[in-house]
Design a protein around this nucleic acid. Structure first.
Lengths: 353, 353
DNA sequence: AGGCTTTTGTCAACCGGTTGCCATAAATTG
DNA sequence: CAATTTATGGCAACCGGTTGACAAAAGCCT
C-alpha cells in the first residue's frame, strides 16, 4: 500500500456521522472513484446502470468497491431519485392472527426481492389508518393495505400518488388480492347438507367489512343451490368475545349449523355453546373462515374455510413489485382459491336424545 | 450565455419525482422561506431547533408551513444528520405467536414517539439474522433483537455501531429486556405441589436458547424449594409438533406434571396425550410458558406462566428511544414480572382408577 | 453614549448519490 | 482516409435539508 487513504487530515476530521459510534466512516463512491482512478459519476453508473460503462472500468470499480466494502447510502440515493426500496404494509390489528401470515408472506417476498418492509397498524380505525398511510407514503415506494377500513375514495387517492395494493377487499381501479370464497363455501355447505343439516346460520362481521358481505352472499348462494335455509345474524365484534355474545342468538335461530365471519367468532361461539352444555358437532356444527393459527387447538378442532393468507401477502407484494418495476401492467385483481378444511367441529347431526 | 441550464425549461421540468404520479410537488423549506420572506436556513431552524429563532419569525414560518402543507423530506434530513426516526425489529419467526405481542408493543410505542418500525425475520437462522441486522443498520437509528440467535459477540459488535436492545436474552454490555421467570415459576410449582404432584418434568427448548436455560434453572430451584423431584426432557423443536413428539418421553418419565419451554410445546403435548386417552389434568397436569394467543382455545384451557410480551416490546422500544435521545444512560437490564395464569390444564392429580 | 454580551438571521458548505449534457476516443462507413 | 456515428467518461447541477461561522440587530450595563 503506497498511501494510507487520506493524509493526516483524515485523522482529525470525520466528526461522527455515518459511522455512528466508532469505526471507520463508510466508504462512498468518491472513495471508490479515487481508488479506481475514475470520476464519481462513473462509479455511480457502473454500480447502477448496467452496460453504461466499459467492461474494463466496470471491473476496476467493482473491485475497488469490494475492497472498500462499499454499501450505497440509501438516503443519498433516495434523495434525488425518490426510490427507497421499501414498501409499507398497513394492517388493522397486529395481534389479529389473520394478519400474521399476511405479514409473513409480504415480508418474505420483500426480502427476496431486496426490499424492506415497513409495518404499521391502524388499530381498526379508519382515520388512524389514513394517517398512517399518509405518513408512510413519504418514505416508501408502494403500499399494501390489508383489509383496509377507509373509504374507497381515500384508497384511490392514495393510489394516485404511489402504487397501492389492497388485500381482502376489492376497490375499483386499484389492484387487489382477494380470496375467492365461492369454492370453499360451496364445499362447506355441501358438506353440511350431506350431513343432514337443513338450516344454516351465518354470523356476520363488521358492517363495513367488504369480506363479510362477500361471505354472506356466498353462503346464501350455496344454501340456495343445496336447498338449505340460510339466516343471517349480526355480531358485535369479530373476536372470540363477539362469538360468545352471539351464542344466544344462534341458539334462538334454530339453526343446526353455523358459519361465522371468521375463526375467532367461531371459537368464541363454540366455547360458549359448550359451556352451556351443547355438544359439537353432535348437536350443532360450526364452521369458521380463514384457518388462522390456533384453529386446530380447540376441541373439537375447528372446521374452517381456509384463505391462503400467506399467499395473499406474498401475492400482494409481488403485484406491488411488478407494478414498481413493471411495464405499467393493467392492475388486475388477483384471486386466490379458498378451500374447506374439514376438522371435528362440523359433522352429522345426531337425532335428539 | 451566462447560464445554459434551465431558463424557461423550468415550466417543462418536474419530470415526476417527489410528487410521484400527479399532484403538485411537495413543498420544501425553500418554498416556505419564500412565502415567509426569510432564509431557508432560518426555516430549518424554526422547524427543528426550538428557541433558536424569535417568536415572531417562528410564527411566520409555522403559518407558511401550514399553508403550504409542508412535510419534511425524511431522506433529505437523514442524509446530513444520519437520523431517520426509524428503528428495526428482528424476530426469529414472524408466525410464532410469541412475537406477535412483542411486535405490537414495539410498534405502538414507536408510533407514539413518532418513530417508524421496520420489521425483519431471521427464519430462526443465526446467519440470516446477522445479515438482516447488518442491512438494517444502515437505515435505522436503533435495533431491537427479539430472542436473537446470533452470538453474544455479534450482538455487541452491532451495539457498537448503533443502539441495540435485546429481548428475551441477557447479553453483557447491551441493554436487555427479560421476563423474570422466578415469580411465575414458583407460583406454578407451588400450585403443583399443593395439588399433590411429586415429580415434575421440564421439556426444554432449543439448546442455544438463553430463555430455556433460565426456565429450567427456575424450575429446578422451585422444585427443590418445594421438595419436588425435577427431571429435564429434550424437545426436537419448540413447536406444536415438537410437543407431540416429546409425549412418549413424558409418559416414560413417570412425571405427573409437566412444564414446557413454551405454550406451543404444551399444546402439542396435550393433544398427543389426550389422543392416547389420557385425561388432563386428572392424570397429568400441563403448564406452558408465555401465554400466547390461543393458549385458552384448548380443552382444557392451558395453564401457563405468562410473560408480558407486549410489555417487553414496548419496554424495549422505550429503552431504545431513551438511549437515542437520552443522556447516555447506564443501559441496565429491564426485568418484567411473570405470573401464573391458572386455567384448566393443571390441577389435582386423581388417584389411579 | 459607548462598549459589551446576547439574539437572530444569512451565507455557504456540506451529506452521498444521480443524471443531463458535453467532449473525447473509438468504431463504423462511404 | 475523411466523415460520421457510437461508446465512454467527466463536469457540474441538483435532490432538500442541516449546521458552523459570522455579521447585523438588539439588549444590557455602567
Amino acid at each position: 500500500m503506497t498511501e494510507p487513504r487520506t493524509p493526516d487530515v483524515a485523522a482529525t476530521r470525520a466528526p461522527a456521522k455515518k459511522h455512528a459510534r466508532d469505526g471507520k466512516p463508510n466508504a462512498t463512491i468518491y472513495d471508490i472513484a479515487k481508488v479506481a482512478g475514475v470520476n464519481p459519476s462513473t462509479v455511480s453508473r457502473a454500480l447502477s446502470k448496467p452496460g453504461r460503462v466499459s467492461a474494463k472500468t466496470q471491473k476496476l470499480i467493482e473491485d475497488a468497491a469490494a475492497e472498500l466494502n462499499y454499501q450505497v447510502n440509501p438516503f443519498a440515493r433516495a434523495l434525488p431519485t425518490g426510490r427507497t426500496n421499501t414498501f409499507g404494509l398497513i394492517v388493522a390489528d397486529i395481534t389479529n392472527p389473520t394478519f400474521f401470515d399476511i405479514i409473513r408472506g409480504a415480508e418474505t417476498t420483500a426480502t427476496v426481492r431486496d426490499y424492506t418492509l415497513v409495518l404499521a397498524e391502524s388499530a381498526e380505525s379508519a382515520v388512524t389508518e389514513l394517517t398512517a398511510a399518509r405518513r408512510m407514503m413519504a418514505t416508501v415506494d408502494g403500499l399494501i393495505l390489508a383489509s383496509p377500513r377507509m373509504d374507497d375514495d381515500d384508497i384511490r387517492t392514495l393510489a394516485r400518488d404511489k402504487p397501492v395494493v389492497v388485500i381482502n377487499r376489492e376497490v375499483d381501479g386499484v389492484p387487489c388480492v382477494v380470496p375467492d370464497v365461492n369454492k370453499g363455501i360451496s364445499e362447506a355447505v355441501r358438506s353440511l347438507a350431506a350431513n343432514g343439516h337443513t338450516k344454516v346460520a351465518f354470523v356476520a362481521g363488521p358492517a363495513q367489512s367488504w369480506m363479510s358481505a362477500r361471505r354472506w352472499e356466498g353462503v346464501q348462494a350455496a344454501c340456495e343451490w343445496s336447498r338449505l335455509e340460510a339466516v343471517r345474524l349480526e355480531s358485535t365484534k369479530p373476536t372470540v368475545d363477539g362469538g360468545r355474545q352471539v351464542a344466544r342468538d344462534v341458539r334462538a335461530s334454530g339453526a343446526t349449523a353455523v358459519l361465522t365471519y371468521n375463526d375467532l367468532l367461531a371459537i368464541g361461539l363454540m366455547q360458549e355453546l359448550q359451556a352451556a352444555g351443547m355438544v359439537v358437532p353432535d348437536q350443532i356444527s360450526i364452521v369458521g373462515f380463514d384457518d388462522i393459527f390456533g384453529a386446530d387447538f380447540t376441541t373439537p378442532p375447528l372446521t374452517t374455510v381456509r384463505s391462503p393468507l400467506g399467499e395473499c401477502g406474498s401475492g400482494a407484494a409481488t403485484l406491488l413489485l411488478d407494478l414498481l418495476h413493471g411495464t405499467g401492467e393493467p392492475a388486475a385483481t388477483l384471486r386466490v382459491e379458498t378451500e374447506l378444511v374439514l376438522r371435528g367441529s362440523s359433522g352429522r347431526l345426531l337425532p335428539e336424545g
